[in-house]
Amino acid sequence: MASKVFFTDMRTKPGINMYDKLNRLIKKAGIEEIEMQDKLVALKIHFGEPGNLAYLRPNYAAAVVKKIKKMGGKPFLTDCNTLYYGRRANAVDHLEAAMENGFNRIAVGCDVVIADGLTGGDATEIPLDFDLVKSAKIGSAIADSDIVISLNHFKGHEQTGFGGALKNIGMGCGSRKGKMEMHSSSKPKIKEENCVSCGMCIRKCPQKAIAYNENLNAQIDYNKCIGCGQCVASCHYGAATAIYDQAAELLNKKIAEYAFAVLKDKPHFHINFMMNISPDCDCWDSNDQAIAPDLGIAASFDPVALDHACVDLVNAVPGVKSSRLYEKGDYKEGEDKFVHVHPDVHWRDCLGHAEEIHLGTLDYKLIQVN
């Protein structure tokens, strides 16, 4: 049976703004069906690496917080620390980054909790016994919550094709040990014939795992590489690429299994914001030109159907001519934008596996909310 996905576009008029449209959307999608009285509600969000301006605006989070409080819930915004070193690798820096980007009690109406503690070690193991993940290591604050609601900036991603609900929930809720488990089988490679020796991947590698070889081409030390994909996102010459083999497929399938663990036995609801649809993740301290125009907001109880619907919505509109999509001159209208930008990864691996493990369905019915 197809899952219902509710969608509202960006068109507004006097007396009806985007706050109003968001509230109408989540009400129509059924958020009020969740019993929230005195429940701890984890709002899973990506706070954005400072310097990146494509991340989800805190104004939207504030509107959802207000709705949950009105329903009697006790919301908190949350994310887990990053695997790589940056401004979100420990709770102190992470909270400062969130504050800098506008996620604080004054702006959004609730507190920010870093789910896996000070250094990423505060985790709860959720038994799964799947083929790939036997026990998922989830940030304890998320695991201990009563309800999970994901607020997802829908955009491209260098290791999963796009980042939506499943990526935000699966990879985002993993503790540092959990992230390492997901990334353990996924390592990038360097195509020496494409390397221009710009040094960007060397500067951006958090593990100092890349250096020049005797030919002055970048070379990866796999004893140090953690598979975070930062080199892939920083290289605009096609030299650092994800390896599309069993390893890349396993990463995406593990993300689906981790998402299953996060949502297991809990009420959950998901909202995708198709705005500032950048080609890469919000983990970067900059954001490239959006590859598609702002489209709107979609919501569903089914994260698989939601992500699939959003892919189709993005692919149904013309691309942004000044974006990376067109820089090589070989993009054809109607082509899958996310596959074109990241041809070495396949987003269907994650969504397809999520359907196989009964996290949701790829079949959806799109319902317009004005």
Rank of each mutant, 00 (worst) to 15 (best):
L56E: 12
V108E: 07
L359F: 15
M171G: 06
E214L: 02
Y326D: 04
H157M: 09
M18Q: 15
G334Y: 06
P127K: 15
T82M: 13
A61T: 07
A143V: 01
M71I: 14
F6G: 04
T361W: 02
L40Q: 01
R324W: 04
A143G: 06
A242F: 00
A141G: 06
V112C: 06
A218G: 04
N52Q: 06
P279T: 01
A29E: 12
G73K: 06
I271C: 14
H342N: 02
S323D: 06
V311P: 02
N217L: 07
I126E: 09
N217D: 08
Y326H: 14
S145D: 15
D336C: 03
S322D: 01
I255G: 10
K74Q: 12
A211Y: 13
A261V: 09
R348E: 13
K224S: 12
D116R: 10
G86K: 09
G30W: 04
F154C: 01
K328T: 09
L216V: 02
Y85Q: 11
E181P: 05
E214H: 05
I226P: 11
P343V: 10
I16S: 04
K189G: 00
Y222G: 08
S185L: 10
K191C: 02
I169K: 03
P188G: 04
N101S: 04
L151M: 13
K365E: 13
D282P: 03
L128K: 05
K254C: 14
I147M: 10
S323R: 06
S300D: 05
G360D: 01
N315P: 03
N101P: 02
N101T: 06
V108N: 06
I138D: 14
A62M: 01
A97S: 09
A248F: 00
L22F: 05
H236V: 00
Y258P: 06
F301I: 00
G163S: 14
V304K: 10
L128Q: 11
I220H: 10
C350E: 09
I367C: 06
E49W: 11
D129N: 15
Q207W: 10
C235S: 10
K167A: 11
G161D: 12
G163T: 15
K208P: 00
A62G: 10
L43H: 07
I26G: 03
